[in-house]
Simulated assay, not measured.
Amino acid sequence: MAATNYRQPSPLDELNATAQRIAANVERVLVGKPEVVRIALVTLLAEGHLLVEDVPGVGKTSLAKALARSIDCTVSRIQFTPDLLPSDVTGVSIFNRQTNEFEFRPGPVFANIVVGDEINRASPKTQSALLECMEEEQVTVDTSTYPLESPFMVIATQNPIEMEGTYALPEAQRDRFTARVSIGYPDPQAELAMVDEHAGHNPLADLQPVSHADQVRGLIETVRAITLSPDIRRYCVELVSTTRRLPEIRIGASPRSTLHLVRAARAQAALSGRDFVVPDDVHSVAVPVLAHRLVLTPEAQAGRRSTAELIRGLVARVPVPQASAEPHGHWMRSR
């Protein structure tokens, strides 16, 4: 009897299998938006934070909750309101009369996935409470620092700034979000399918975890090991630095955005089943990673230019590094 050849699944195989399970779970709730789900997975694997921006009623909170429920980990939700205080987010020290000492009571930010609903309805003071959490994965209260458990991801939703009762996110806060997505209205077929499937019950109620925190930590390590050639590194730096020289832009992308672009490109390469990054990976994440960081000049705003449009034009103009004749060999030489 011939022996059966058995190949041990590689880390990339495990990553893709897990990502497909999570994506299928989320798409049970958010029908007809595979591109939005892809960016959400890229952000998760890139150790980043996701900003979901769109008009009310298109599924922003449903996306955040579906992704959170697909992973068996600690999840908390913060409903941002104008009277929310920073201590309501990070936690507070309370005096214990029995021990005569202050005890720290952790806030909802102490979770693996934090869902911040309508983040731009809180004051800038409260929004800024997330700055240290998102960048350094720690919280400082009363001179004491408390680490946040990995993986740590903030999924924030917001309505457009022209809606009443909202505050525009400060530039420093927006820069800490790895990617921004807009869900948009579904096409008629997807909306009809949503009516058929969701009218009778809420699909979130039946959603079960298909992964767990330890597994996600392993997937993040796999993404970190994705090869990034020197030419791709230079290409990412050139894309970002060019945004600072555009006449339509008052404030260009920061060096932090270069790091986020590289991490997102690595995650996209892993989702594509490759252990190396190619220019197409950079192109597929450039708009969601870079567009929300740019600040237009008043003239560009008056001309109704969009930052996403400018990034697409930039990707089309900046020369793409050329690979050698050897298939993929050029992109696999260095990390």
Rank of each mutant, 00 (worst) to 15 (best):
residue 215 Q to P: 00
residue 244 R to H: 01
residue 244 R to D: 03
residue 279 P to K: 11
residue 294 L to I: 06
residue 234 R to W: 00
residue 291 A to P: 06
residue 165 G to A: 06
residue 291 A to G: 03
residue 207 L to P: 08
residue 262 V to N: 00
residue 242 T to E: 13
residue 227 T to R: 15
residue 230 P to K: 10
residue 167 Y to P: 06
residue 283 H to Y: 09
residue 291 A to Y: 08
residue 254 S to T: 13
residue 248 E to N: 00
residue 175 D to G: 06
residue 221 E to D: 11
residue 221 E to Q: 15
residue 253 A to Q: 07
residue 193 A to E: 15
residue 257 S to W: 00
residue 201 H to P: 03
residue 298 P to W: 04
residue 164 E to L: 11
residue 245 R to H: 15
residue 219 L to Y: 00
residue 290 L to H: 09
residue 178 T to A: 14
residue 218 G to P: 03
residue 189 Q to A: 13
residue 216 V to A: 02
residue 176 R to F: 08
residue 214 D to Y: 04
residue 174 R to M: 14
residue 221 E to R: 13
residue 250 R to A: 15
residue 239 L to I: 14
residue 269 A to S: 09
residue 245 R to K: 13
residue 219 L to G: 07
residue 273 G to S: 05
residue 245 R to C: 03
residue 297 T to Y: 07
residue 296 L to N: 03
residue 163 M to H: 07
residue 247 P to S: 14
residue 228 L to M: 15
residue 163 M to S: 13
residue 166 T to M: 04
residue 299 E to V: 05
residue 231 D to W: 01
residue 202 N to G: 11
residue 233 R to C: 03
residue 217 R to D: 10
residue 196 D to I: 12
residue 279 P to G: 07
residue 179 A to R: 13
residue 255 P to S: 10
residue 180 R to P: 00
residue 291 A to S: 14
residue 278 V to Y: 02
residue 261 L to T: 10
residue 179 A to T: 12
residue 212 H to M: 02
residue 274 R to A: 11
residue 237 V to P: 01
residue 198 H to A: 10
residue 203 P to E: 12
residue 186 P to M: 11
residue 269 A to R: 05
residue 282 V to P: 05
residue 226 I to T: 10
residue 239 L to D: 06
residue 187 D to W: 00
residue 200 G to F: 04
residue 245 R to A: 13
residue 269 A to Y: 00
residue 262 V to P: 05
residue 162 E to L: 03
residue 245 R to L: 14
residue 165 G to T: 07
residue 175 D to I: 03
residue 178 T to Y: 05
residue 208 Q to W: 05
residue 267 A to H: 12
residue 234 R to G: 08
residue 275 D to F: 14
residue 215 Q to I: 04
residue 292 H to A: 07
residue 301 Q to C: 06
residue 188 P to K: 00
residue 186 P to K: 04
residue 223 V to G: 02
residue 180 R to F: 02
residue 212 H to Q: 11
residue 165 G to V: 01
residue 277 V to Q: 04
residue 250 R to Y: 09
residue 209 P to V: 01
residue 236 C to W: 01
residue 228 L to Q: 13
residue 170 P to M: 05
residue 284 S to C: 12
residue 203 P to W: 10
residue 270 A to Y: 04
residue 222 T to V: 10
residue 193 A to V: 01
residue 292 H to L: 06
residue 266 R to S: 07
residue 178 T to W: 11
residue 233 R to D: 08
residue 278 V to K: 13
residue 212 H to F: 10
residue 177 F to P: 06
residue 244 R to F: 02
residue 286 A to T: 06
residue 258 T to S: 14
residue 253 A to E: 09
residue 291 A to E: 03
residue 258 T to G: 00
residue 238 E to V: 01
residue 299 E to Y: 00
residue 219 L to I: 10
residue 277 V to F: 05
residue 178 T to I: 07
residue 197 E to L: 14
residue 254 S to D: 02
residue 251 I to W: 08
residue 276 F to L: 04
residue 249 I to W: 01
residue 212 H to C: 10
residue 240 V to P: 04
residue 229 S to G: 05
residue 296 L to K: 08
residue 198 H to S: 07
residue 204 L to Q: 02
residue 271 L to M: 10
residue 247 P to T: 09
residue 231 D to K: 15
residue 187 D to N: 13
residue 195 V to S: 11
residue 271 L to F: 11
residue 218 G to T: 13
residue 215 Q to T: 15
residue 243 T to F: 04
